[in-house]
Design a protein around this nucleic acid. Sequence first.
DNA 1: CGTGTTTTTGAGCCGTGTCAACGATAGTGG
DNA 2: CCACTATCGTTGACACGGCTCAAAAACACG
Lengths: 243, 243
Amino acid sequence: MAFVEPLLTRLESIGGLSDADRRLVETLPITPKRLAPQDYLLHQGDRPSSSAVVLSGVLARFQELPDGDRQVVSFNLPGEIPDLHSLFIRRMDHSLVAITEAVVGLMPHDDIQRVMETSPTLMKLFWRETLIDAAVFRQWIANNGRRGALSGTAHLLCELMLRARAIGALRPDGGWPMPLTQQQLGDALGLSLVHINRTLKALREDNAAAIERGVLRVLDWDKLSKIAGFDPAYLHLKQAAVA
Amino acid sequence: MAFVEPLLTRLESIGGLSDADRRLVETLPITPKRLAPQDYLLHQGDRPSSSAVVLSGVLARFQELPDGDRQVVSFNLPGEIPDLHSLFIRRMDHSLVAITEAVVGLMPHDDIQRVMETSPTLMKLFWRETLIDAAVFRQWIANNGRRGALSGTAHLLCELMLRARAIGALRPDGGWPMPLTQQQLGDALGLSLVHINRTLKALREDNAAAIERGVLRVLDWDKLSKIAGFDPAYLHLKQAAVA
DNA sequence: CGTGTTTTTGAGCCGTGTCAACGATAGTGG
DNA sequence: CCACTATCGTTGACACGGCTCAAAAACACG
């Protein structure tokens, strides 16, 4: 089975792969695991001995705060390895759950290490993947901090749109089937459910972006990215051009 | 000169070093560079060909938003390499400035690469350093997001205190000479100058923590960490015990 | 001692949160 | 196929946390 395909696509999009490295990645033993919405793949505090590549669906990572609130720190699309960091940072400081029906591919740490020791290029590419992860975190700090609700929300939508497009998840008409509830968006942006709703309404009435029947559609990229103060460079995608 | 010392201490504290690796790190050519407060080491958009280890003083990383606001994404103490990620992510998505008088040690990327290719263990340790950086980002997302002003501020103070202690920067009486202005704290927490001031006042009157004449003093660790919902595990310091 | 920076405080406003209810949508079982 | 139920989205009213404006007090340093 071509389980590796999404991973290869992702690695290709953030740095490129030699034929040899491609074949090497294909030697990774990948155990598929099916997840229903809300299923936990990892809990805060776990010490996994494998990492998971998202094969289909969308996952989220979040911390649970003492008062029960959730802070989402990342959404993860196919091809990404949300817990790659567990290779060298054993204890999970957040949980990893499926947002949609999803399939992940479990890759034992030992095998990842073997592959990386065989190819330093590949090691650097995996490292780079975790560094891009961190670059996204930095933007999210700003989303939750100095950017206001409107700008932060717009920024997140810009980001998701580009990432979805990079893996070919957009429909022919340019819309993206958006699996996130407004509650989940709010937990990512530090906003209440009610306020996220009003913010999305504002973006819709501005003709910037709209979520209609579960499909995110950018109505005016220039306007949306202007509101967001969005610069796609931090995603480090090879084709970072505009929609 | 023992310029490497802070770096060795840092690497030691996050993972440990064999004698061979220690000697290897000591072969890194380190060019010292002195910085005055407010001096930029790197600007957003730069593509550095070396990374800098903080030798003394404190640096900050921040993004400049379109409206001129600043979002601080990190404070960096001696031993840390704030721009290590520039090894594999060329373009800086934020600026790096000195907060205090500071000395950094410039290490060419080529030399870092050479050292890492010689010792895979060391490579993993450097990688781990960037992963801890990312773990801190995740907490800062929560500081700026779901945690309120009081809790977020308390969390940041807890973190700084532990990191300062880990490098022996605390005075005998347990206080830490705090080089950050309230404006800078606000830029890290997404709070206005006025509100950070009021928040610090609240922590002081709670007998949790106080900044007096430029010295941060934790008055009651249990109370402060309770307010913060602080769990030191994410810093991955070998001796993560409480003050 | 003067000048610039940082801290502190007050007053009033606005963005965002909370509470509460209703509407829309989708899946479920009779 | 149609209630039935659960989840999600939408809207209004009101409260509150945090922001802005403005000015004074406390430092820091030459």
